[in-house]
Design a protein around this nucleic acid. Sequence first.
DNA 1: ACACTGTATATATGGTATATACACACTATA
DNA 2: TATAGTGTGTATATACCATATATACAGTGT
Lengths: 149, 149
Amino acid sequence: MVYTHYMNPKPKPGATPIPARRLIIPPISPAASGPLYQQIVDGVKREISAGRLEPGDALPSFRTLAEDLLVSLITVKRAYEELEREGVVFSKQGLGTFVSDNGLARSREMKRDHTEALLRDALREGEEAGLTPNELIALMKQLAKEKEG
Amino acid sequence: MVYTHYMNPKPKPGATPIPARRLIIPPISPAASGPLYQQIVDGVKREISAGRLEPGDALPSFRTLAEDLLVSLITVKRAYEELEREGVVFSKQGLGTFVSDNGLARSREMKRDHTEALLRDALREGEEAGLTPNELIALMKQLAKEKEG
DNA sequence: ACACTGTATATATGGTATATACACACTATA
DNA sequence: TATAGTGTGTATATACCATATATACAGTGT
């Protein structure tokens, strides 16, 4: 696990310094499947979906996250650009990058769509492997149980 | 759909010419997800899993398949190499490429493993989307039903 | 010799990741 | 109220690797 932190963008004047929250982004690795920037995109979406990053919150700066994840600044930029295209975050030069108002909804919608796509793929692939839909559902229940325990 | 054909490698002498069987390989497209050679790999595995290609059968030649799919000979070669690494087929220079004895078993095993991996991904992604395992199973049943009808 | 098979080398293109230099926004302070 | 400083995001040029290709080469059977 790699832990990164970020500060709120505009601390109220006079208020005690806002303690750095922790943004958990899972193991970023060139060995893992998918490009580095995509792993960052997915990680940020997960933090938002889980509610650990709320609309209006600042994401870590390009440089901070790049240092923490041991990747280049450009790679973080690319990830944030992708998130911006998807309407999950927005960037302001000189200020930072922030979660959009509808960032939570978008993240969850996209994850739900992705889930459905994965299930469709599994149905097709399972059928080609000679498994019936019922066998597939049974397999899924088993995997779910394993995950719980 | 793109249809390709192949001839049996060694027609019995004097026998009537063996009618070309049809090897159905699904739409190979640069637009589809995944590299062209991977789409060919998956297509061949599906033909084998479905029993339309049996152990000992000859696959289409590099050039034949390349022409039919409108890709280069090298791309077909790469796909066949991948299949050979996986033990699904084997190639003999000057002769052709053939389905291995255990090609059917291997294809199905790999597809089954892939199916399981997809289900695991769906479970994780669904959880992050805020879906419970039960909701996921219900979604899966629904998708299966849609696929039937 | 011929017509088929697979093989090998060199090349082009695009995606991914990088280093370096640039531009904007806030803030402390002279 | 200027202005230097330190943080932010931005843009350009470069390196590397995966993917796909054209062309020429080598083996097999008739």
